[in-house]
């Protein structure tokens, strides 16, 4: 595989939930080392796309493929996708009461890298360092996962998981929503540590704010379940200035706001 082989490619993806078609032919290719941003109005299908990529059982794929690491991952369970190196930072991470952050992350790391690959002492040491980097209190190690966490703490926990599991492709589903400026800076710092020649990133967001911290090489605008427009960093500024209407017009489709 040459360095620029499209290791992640969404081809003509159609998906529905409860008989409502949401994705209507999404095409998107990410190469290693690239950071892509995906924006779009409410209801355009952004979160659905991230859920379908990870394999949420509530969505049914009706057509298309998602190629990752040389295979169509739509046939795989979510856990198998994760073990291939796919990661989703959730918009609304759920709590797992009774399971500590350390236990959860160790179980996940064992699943990802193989049982016994990481020694517990080494694991905890790395976890502590990563938590320090994300400016989290060490007390989180023994807290139950996301249980009683604030919105900002949950988002940092997602990034901590990403640093621990070292994915090769990460999808961030509106990680920036509801974050204050400090939290946004910290989260971005974590993400930028991952960015490199062997890592692909898809940042789904409502606001261009996060894109000042995580500089995308590509921007896609999703409208009514399709990528209506793609471009480079300049497109971010245009969206910021003019909203989505002009894209919608250009795309020539009726869209609900």
């Amino acid at each position: 595989m040459s360095e620029k082989t499209p290791f992640f490619e969404i081809r003509n993806l159609h998906a529905k939930t409860e008989d409502k078609a949401i994705l209507k032919g999404v095409n998107l290719t990410i190469l290693p080392g690239e950071t892509h941003a995906l924006m779009g109005p409410n209801g355009s299908g952004k979160s659905t796309l991230s859920n379908v990529i990870m394999g949420h059982p509530a969505y049914e794929v009706t057509d298309g493929e998602v190629i990752f690491q040389g295979q169509n991952i739509l046939e795989l369970d979510p856990d198998a996708r994760a073990r291939l190196g796919l990661f989703l930072a959730f918009q609304y991470p759920v709590a797992i009461p009774g399971i500590s952050v350390a236990k959860f992350l160790k179980s996940a790391a064992d699943a990802r890298f193989g049982q016994g690959t990481i020694k517990p002492a080494q694991f905890i040491k790395q976890l502590r360092e990563d938590m320090k980097f994300l400016e989290m209190s060490e007390a989180f190690i023994n807290r139950f996962l996301n249980d009683g966490f604030s919105g900002g703490e949950k988002k940092r926990m997602e990034i901590l998981q990403m640093l621990t599991l070292k994915p090769v492709l990460a999808v961030m589903d509106e990680t920036d929503s509801g974050l204050d400026i400090d939290a946004l800076r910290i989260v971005s710092k974590g993400v930028n540590r991952m960015v490199g020649p062997n890592f692909g990133l898809l940042v789904i967001t409502h606001y261009e704010r996060i894109l000042r911290y995580i500089a995308p090489s590509h921007l896609h605008v999703l409208i009514d379940g399709q990528v209506a427009m793609s471009g480079g960093p300049d497109l971010v500024k245009e969206v910021e200035k003019n909203g989505y209407d002009w894209i919608r017009e250009k795309f020539g489709k009726e869209v609900l706001v």
Binding site: G55, P78, D79, R81, A82, I96, I99, F104, A108, A111
Partner: peptide, 19 residues
Amino acid sequence: QLFYVQSRGIDEESATSLI
């Protein structure tokens, strides 16, 4: 919860057991 735990690489049975 199951989807969340599975999305971290933990299979369905282990995820159920963990929860």
